[in-house]
Amino acid sequence: MSSLSGSKKSVPTPGITVRVENLSISYRTTFERVPTFKNAITRFGRGQRAVKEIKALKNVTFDVPDGTFLGIIGSNGAGKSTLMRSIAGILPPNEGRIEVNGRISPLLSLGVGFNANLSGRENITLGGLAAGLSRREVADRAEAVTEFAGIEEFIDAPMRTYSSGMYSRLAFSVAVHMDPDILMIDEALSAGDAAFKTKAAEKMQELRDNARAMFLVSHSMASITQLCNRAIWLHKGQLMMEGEPKEVIDKYNEFLKVGPSAVTLEDL
């Protein structure tokens, strides 16, 4: 829990919500399919560790001044979720430094649904309690979250029975009901039907007035243009560009050689 250990006696930089300096983060994964006691012994015998290091972020630097609504774009595996997690204090940096001034949404949207055998309500409750809310606060929020997500009939069913649309409606709804200073939404806008998208977009507009800063990861260039006033583009862990959403998206599309096709724009 780096947020505890990481807190140093240092002075907040005025006017800055998040400052990321030379940030590098690697995951370490095991690739053993059937981990057995026998394998462990043979590995020990050979003095190997079946660990592979994946560099998810490489030397990323940027500032997020107060009042920034930052869109983060990039293809799958670019490191967008990793960046969000590191700012939320979940992933410790391997190198570099992150300064955060403000209360982060204590529960990133995808924290919900961590256990598919539990009901939506149980997942919300557990996520909220882990994030430090009281039972009372969690219960209140669970109601609001369920109502906003419009899944009242399913909230007590195991989450494995949810459709992907219901899942992301719930995820979005959780993220926006935690009233943080710094709102973080990771790809939770994409699914859901047209009615919910409109509702979600309205909610986002409303939240823009309450949050000090917002981070939005989305594959929908239209939502980024609409909701954000700044954007960064990550590619394979590297920061490719930072700037006005429009410029960044244009460069990104140019890079992908797709151009601003109808699909990317219409898909909120």
């Binding site: 829990m1 947020s3 505890l4 240092s10 410790p92 940096p93 209360r103 204590p106 430090g132 200073d181």
Partner: peptide
């Protein structure tokens, strides 16, 4: 809620323990 204080700095941690009392 000490855990969500408004100012945080995250840096690479050297092996060892976080402050046990606040933990």
């Amino acid at each position: 809620n000490e855990f969500t204080t408004t100012h945080h700095v995250y840096e690479p941690h050297t092996a060892g323990l976080p402050p046990i009392r606040s933990y």
